[in-house]
Design a protein around this nucleic acid. Structure first.
Length: 1032
RNA sequence: GGGCGAUUAGCUCAGUGGUAGAGCACUUCGUUGACAUCGAAGGGGUCACAAGUUCGAACCUUGUAUCGCCCA
């Protein structure tokens, strides 16, 4: 059947994809050879609320290239797709939908009903991004699409069969029992909008306009000191008596929770007052707290006044200082970021804090219970409180004042300078943390959270990369990996959300034997906590531990009416004071696990662990992970730690990291800049193959990814080129009618022997590029081969054969042409699956219409032939000679303005035996493409000829009457100039005795051969130049 | 401030010690029967700078400058 004029990507893509999917081409193990090794890629699970963006398109193109390549090679492949449940993002999406459809809010409907809504939403809309991947041609095993919440309680029937939930819970319980997970009070990123802790990854630090206020903290009891400032040379520039220390802050509202003022130990200005007490200048005057001046390495002497207030509960740096110095950390805000309104009146609370400062013992929880917000600020939003605090301090005269001079114009236009004393407030940009979803300012907050003790599990993850078990590409990624893991922090894994894996820990509040609040064990001041994988296991633990006590659970949804954790407290406390419990009432921790905790188990969780599955046996450890370098820490490192901690094996052997896809100028794509490119728009306009080829060509190791539309257009043209060359084979030379074979046809013509060898070289190049994850090298090799070698040379050179009457030559060339196209399609298929499959199909009706997967290109055998076997050096030398003659003639003609269409005569003055043979065999071809009508042998070229030098031969075009002699002279002079430069370099090297001594023999031989060739060329051109000089 | 990286043709980028490359853009020419989403022929680079190692450096070392990214 004749090929259409052009490739219609829009209709072909969906038709081909459906045919592949229906024929089961993507399923695990499809096209595997018997006894094949396995090759597995885990998709980095996109967010279930996500839509496809360029980053996904790039990332998944690379994965698909590798999978298709390995699948064609006969490996037992699995590309495992799926999504993560994205706790915060999904809750946000569903809550927004509830609001838009006038349904009750999350809080109104309660936890259980809300989760039902989430599952409904997931069923309706959760598959968006996975379906979008199909538009790219992604050949993942969609029948295995996984979800990090599958199998969770409350999951609908179609999500209940997965067991990701079991895996997550089992890992938590095991790590808890091994002491790798603990609960504690620690500073976390708190999102006041969603009222949950969030991970560092979900925080965006953005520079925003802010203010730096300067306040005076008076020394206690009116004490004074001499404050001295010196310049670089030690000269005194300021000396005065002060009764205060000056503090600079961007967050005055946190002053209420200050625990100390810190200065650098080497700061001489404050040395006299270190250890003294200062008064926090806010709050009711009669209850002002006193805090100490301490030393710490953290303050920067040159920043602000050099003195820093320490608010351990609301700042990450201060937290470290407070921990080092044993400074109390007072929490000032509630979960919404408003100033606390709980607790006793301020006077009472301030007294507690002062008592603690003087040495009274308080537990962590007791300190946390202290509310140091004065009555008039309680309940205010933090930004409102900030204004109020600034106002209070300023009105009390405790702001640092400066003189500001302004020029003012009066009504008559006279300018006068007016000075006034104003509070010192610097307007300056400050880095502020924002929640990436909520867009509100993140509040560092001291809260109770669950943590993985990362330090205890980091060792094996470090070793696996250090000893080469796992490779990270590009190599610089390994350095970053070490740096982070060697300085690892505890990992906060609890989130105050409803959508997620609920933490499998139950609390049993009660009363200690001495009557104090505590757990039924009487062990410590928190409630008793028991970790178990489910309530059945929990009941067994309770029964055994408390002499046969029955376990009764109350709901942990304390937002529900009539449900209060105090119920459990009351019930348990009524149960007597000895160990004879008959029943214990507990509730489950309401928090859920960080989504990354489940994503961290993606490799084993998707393969069915903890069950002993065939997939685990076959595909784990997996092979290659391709992901963005921005989640090296958050995901890659955690997968390493968790898989090693849980199954004692690395999750993959190679990690390929890539950067962010940017616009053509290198700017980040963002909605606000308006430079976002939708990959599906590109697919619509240029076809998926063009986008994929662009992605591959951009993917140099460690390279920056700049997406340029011009480039996509160029690769769309390449798709067309491939189509046209195939259509020439089909419609013009009828190459595809005969039977063909995977092996190269027998060929006698040098042209055909040559292209077979070129294909073999290409196959090696493509394989070694893919092996080394150099997708760009593979793409460039394919592009250069097909455009410059196959189309510009081979295809053109077949024309004289089909215009001639040598039937044997025609038959052979048809066979070789068809084979070369087939091989090109195979080698290009991983990068451009659609157009290649379509051509494969229409040139032989193979597979797509019949649904026979074994005849589709996607399951064709990847070739293994070697250049060493298929390259014919003789044929190669001959074709290179022919090409050199044609190129030289064309170039010379163009430069001296011989009309391109003119047929001209040529003379040969000298030619060696090889050259003669080459000429004789390729005369028709050379004449056609060099536009030569005759060749005459002469001893000497006619005066005024154009000189053509070829290896072993000298030609001339006797066109004295047509050409511009001056131009020809200029051309030859230019060539001689270039040659002279090259010759100089080559002779310089060869004449240097040290070069002969130190350089490898092959380099010397190569240099000599090169010199000889250049010298021959120079001699010919000089001769021609002299001949030309004779006539002009 | 700490860590990682970059600087090569007008633009976007390859190039891990042996004659500086590609694509795009540019100039000139072209309705020769695969293809104008094309063809032919060209121009264009002190490889950021400086010093060093080497027979030989875009490439290795050190420093400087500028620019990114990540973490504070």
């Amino acid at each position: 059947m004749a090929m259409e004029k052009t490739f219609d990507a829009a209709t072909a893509e969906s038709r081909l994809f459906n045919a592949w999917e229906q024929a089961g081409c993507f399923t695990a193990g499809a096209n595997a050879k018997p006894e094949a090794s396995s090759y597995c890629i885990m998709i980095p699970p996109p967010n279930v609320t996500g839509v496809l963006h360029m980053g996904h398109a790039f990332n998944n193109t690379l994965q698909d290239i590798l999978i298709r390549w390995k699948r064609m090679q006969g490996f037992d492949t699995l590309w495992q797709p799926g999504c993560d449940h994205a706790g915060i993002a999904t809750q946000m999406v569903v809550e927004r939908e509830l609001a838009n459809t006038q349904q009750p809010s999350r809080a109104e409907m309660g936890r259980e009903a809300f989760l039902e809504k989430v599952w409904d939403w997931k069923g309706k809309s959760g598959g968006t991004i996975i379906n979008q991947l199909k538009r790219l041609g992604a050949s993942a095993d969609f029948s295995r699409t996984a979800f990090t919440m599958s199998g969770a309680p409350g999951a609908p029937a179609d999500e209940a069969d997965g067991n990701f939930h079991d895996a997550v819970i089992k890992v938590f319980v095991e790590m808890y029992n091994k002491g790798l997970i603990y609960r504690g009070k620690r500073l976390v990123n708190w999102d006041p909008h969603f009222e949950t802790a969030i991970s560092d990854l979900e925080v965006e630090n953005i520079e925003t306009p802010g203010h730096m206020w300067h306040f005076k903290y008076p020394l206690a009891g009116g004490a004074t000191y001499t404050y001295v400032e010196k310049d670089e040379d030690g000269n005194v520039t300021l000396e005065e008596t002060r009764d205060y220390i000056s503090i600079a802050t961007t967050r005055p509202e946190t002053m209420l929770g200050d625990g100390a003022v810190a200065v650098h130990p080497s700061d001489e200005r404050y040395a006299p007052i270190v250890g003294k007490l200062v008064e926090i200048p806010v709050g009711p005057k009669e209850h002002r707290r006193l805090i100490p001046i301490i030393t710490d390495e953290y303050p920067d002497k040159d920043f602000g006044s050099g003195a820093v207030k320490i608010t351990g509960a609301h700042d990450f740096n201060d937290y470290q200082v407070a921990k080092r110095g044993g400074i109390p950390m007072y929490r000032l805000m509630d979960t919404k970021g408003a100033m606390r309104a709980d607790g006793a009146p301020y006077a009472e609370e301030a007294a507690k804090a002062q008592a603690h400062a003087k040495g009274a013992e308080f537990t962590e929880n007791e300190i946390d219970a202290i509310n140091l917000v004065p009555e008039e600020l309680r309940g205010l939003d933090r930004f409102e409180a900030r204004k109020a605090v600034v106002e209070q301090i300023t009105s009390e005269g405790l702001a640092v004042m400066i003189t500001e001079t302004q020029t003012v114009k009066d009504d008559d236009g006279n300018e006068t300078e007016v000075s006034q004393i104003v509070p010192f407030v610097e307007n300056k940009p400050i880095m502020q943390p924002f929640g990436d979803r909520s867009k509100v300012v993140i509040e560092p907050m001291l809260t109770d959270q669950w943590f993985v003790d990362a330090e205890k599990v980091v060792g094996p993850a470090l070793d696996a990369v250090k000893d080469g078990t796992v490779k990270i590409l590009p190599e610089s990624g390994e350095k970053t990996y070490y740096h982070w893991l060697e300085n690892i922090e505890p990992w906060c894994i609890s989130r105050q959300l409803w959508w997620g894996h609920q933490i499998p820990v139950w609390y049993f509040p009660g009363r200690n034997k001495d009557g104090s609040v505590g757990d039924p064990d009487g062990a410590y001041d928190g409630p008793l906590a028991i970790c178990a994988s489910d309530t059945k296991e929990l009941a067994a633990i309770v029964k055994e531990r408390f002499n046969g006590a029955i376990f009764t659970e109350i709901s942990s949804d304390f937002s529900a009416p009539d449900n209060n954790p105090m119920d459990a407290f009351m019930t348990n406390s009524l149960l007597g004071t000895n160990e004879d419990y008959s029943s214990l009432v507990g509730f489950r921790d309401p928090d859920v696990l960080d989504t990354w905790f489940s994503s961290g188990l993606w490799p084993i969780g998707t393969l069915g662990w903890p069950n002993d599955t065939q997939e685990m046996a076959t595909y784990f450890p997996t092979s290659t992970l391709i992901t963005g370098q921005d989640i090296l820490f958050f995901w890659v490192a955690r997968m390493m730690m968790m898989q090693l901690a849980v199954v004692d094996q690395v999750p993959f052997d190679t990690v390929y990291l890539h950067g962010l896809v940017r616009d053509a100028k290198g700017k980040k794509m963002s909605k606000s800049t308006g430079n976002v490119v939708d990959p599906l728009d590109i697919v619509d306009e240029y076809g998926a193959d063009a986008l994929r080829f662009t992605n591959a060509a951009m993917a140099s190791l460690g390279g920056v990814l700049k997406l340029d539309m011009k480039r996509i257009e160029g690769y769309r043209n390449f798709v067309t080129k491939l189509w046209q060359a195939s259509s020439y084979g089909d419609n013009v030379i009828d190459a595809f009618s005969a039977e063909r074979d995977a092996d190269a046809p027998k060929a006698t013509l040098p042209l055909n022997r040559w292209i077979i060898g070129e294909i073999a070289k290409l196959r090696e190049e493509v394989d070694s590029a893919f092996d080394a994850f150099r997708f760009n090298d593979a793409a460039n090799a394919l592009y250069a081969f097909f455009w410059n070698t196959f189309c510009a040379r081979y295809l053109e050179f077949t024309k004289p054969i089909f215009h001639g009457d040598d039937q044997a030559a025609k038959d052979e060339t048809q066979a070789v042409y068809a084979w070369a196209i087939d091989q090109s399609l195979i080698l290009m298929h991983p990068i451009m699956p659609f157009v290649t499959e379509e051509i494969w199909n229409v040139t032989d009706g193979r597979g797509i219409e019949t649904g026979d997967a074994s005849k589709m290109l996607i399951h064709a055998d990847w070739p293994t032939y070697k250049a060493a076997d298929l390259v014919d050096a003789e044929a190669e030398a001959e074709m290179n000679w022919v090409i050199a003659v044609i190129d030289n003639v064309r170039s010379a003609r163009a430069q001296v303005n011989v009309p391109a269409g003119a047929q001209v005569p040529m003379v040969v003055t000298q030619i060696d035996a090889a050259g003669k043979a080459y000429w004789d065999r390729n005369e028709a071809l050379i004449k056609r493409f060099a536009r030569i009508d005759s060749l005459t042998e002469m001893d000497e070229a006619p005066k005024g000829s154009i000189a053509i030098a070829a290896p072993g031969a000298s030609f001339g075009l006797p066109l004295a009457e047509i050409i511009d002699v001056a131009k020809e002279k200029a051309r030859l002079e230019k060539t001689l100039g270039k040659l002279a430069k090259e010759l100089g370099g080559l002779r310089g090297r060869l004449n240097n005795p040290k070069f002969a001594d130190s350089a490898p023999a092959e380099v010397i031989a190569e240099t000599r051969a090169n010199l000889a060739a250049r010298e021959e060329e120079e001699a010919k051109i000089k001769e021609a130049f002299e001949r030309l000089a004779e006539i002009a």
